[in-house]
């Protein structure tokens, strides 16, 4: 037949043949009847990763039940709750826990307060240039690590930094802006803002502009539109952002260490001290577990009351 030669010379494109080969190889390695387990197979690496974390937690839990033997500088043999008692009876640790919670709470509040209008502007503006500028301004500090950023704040807000120089121009004496609690919260808010904006943006995008127009045509001024439409409809995003910002702030190390100047320790700093300064693994582990418990309880309560937000499973509430 005349078409035979044509047929024989015909070949599928290289890409297709490679894909076919890969498919065939995959069929050998993972036969089709295992198809229903594919999901689990893909999940395994992530589960292993989390598993290691859980193993570590068990180890920490075990460590927390031994006190440091001050004569040998090794953990003691017998199991005891003494480390937890030390924490419970120490006003210093209570102050640190309280400071961490207050710091995280204030950071959540101020971050959301700043992030909501920022993301709203970014989502709603018709001008592509403005949107891009807002994104770049948001991301620029994002690329700079936390430590470098904290150092930047140290320079700018130091007693001879740009801020005090500016204040000096209007006749105000240099003031101590650093190494206090507000400085730590300031640093945290600055650090968390991009996270919050990025988590709020999709939630705000999901609110149709028409819904706002409708609300105003029905008699709501902008404040009422915000209060009755935007806020409730953006709630999943706000809850998600609050959870992320809250847990990250609660467990933060660098900002309190650098901007607090040693006087404003958060729980993570106390843990660090126990592990690497006094080498009291037991007490450090007890503090670490306390932090895990604190974070989990807060997240659990928030999810129970407000739903999981945009963090995942869409809760009915």
């Amino acid at each position: 037949m005349p078409r035979d030669s044509e047929d024989r010379s015909f070949r599928y494109p290289l890409k297709w043949r490679i894909m076919d080969g890969l498919n065939a190889a995959l069929d050998l390695l993972w036969p089709r009847r295992l198809g229903r387990y594919t999901g689990w197979a893909l999940l395994t690496p992530a589960l292993l990763l989390v598993g290691i974390l859980v193993l570590g937690l068990f180890q920490i839990a075990e460590n927390s039940l031994h006190t440091l033997d001050t004569s040998t500088f090794l953990p003691g043999e017998e199991y005891t709750l003494a480390n937890y008692l030390i924490v419970a009876e120490s006003p210093t640790y209570w102050r640190i826990i309280w400071r961490s919670l207050l710091g995280a709470g204030l950071t959540v509040f101020f971050t959301l307060l700043l992030a909501l209008p920022y993301s709203y502007m970014m989502v709603r503006t018709n001008k592509a240039a403005l949107r891009k500028t807002l994104l770049i301004v948001l991301f620029l500090p994002f690329f700079i690590g936390q430590v470098v950023r904290a150092y930047g704040i140290l320079i700018v807000m130091g007693s001879s930094g740009a801020v005090n120089d500016a204040l000096g121009l209007v006749g105000i004496e240099p003031i101590r802006l650093l190494f206090n609690f507000p400085a730590v919260v300031f640093g945290l808010v600055q650090y968390m803002l991009p996270f919050a904006v990025l988590m709020l943006a999709p939630a705000l995008t999901a609110i149709p502009r028409e819904t706002e127009t409708a609300a105003s045509s029905l008699g709501a001024n902008w404040l009422k539109v915000f209060r009755h439409v935007i806020l409730p409809m953006a709630k999943p995003g706000l809850v998600g952002a609050a959870l992320v910002v809250g847990t990250l702030s609660l467990t933060d190390f660098a900002m309190p260490a650098m901007l607090g100047g040693g006087s404003q320790d958060f729980i993570a700093n106390a843990i660090y001290d126990q592990f690497f300064r006094t080498a009291d693994q037991g007490l450090g582990s007890a503090l670490a577990l306390l932090l895990v418990a604190l974070g989990s309880v807060i997240a659990g309560v928030v999810i129970a009351f407000f739903g999981a937000g945009t963090l995942g499973m869409r809760g009915r509430k």
Binding site: P208, E210, T211, T213, A214, A215, S216, S217, L218, G219, A220, N221, K224, H228, V229, P232, M233, K235
Partner: peptide, 20 residues
């Protein structure tokens, strides 16, 4: 008058009902 003071009712293309 600003939109919220006008006496105009509007039914929108995508209805724009409040889902919450």
């Amino acid at each position: 008058a600003p939109p919220h003071r006008r006496s105009i009712g509007m039914v929108f293309q995508k209805l724009a009902l409040f889902p919450h």
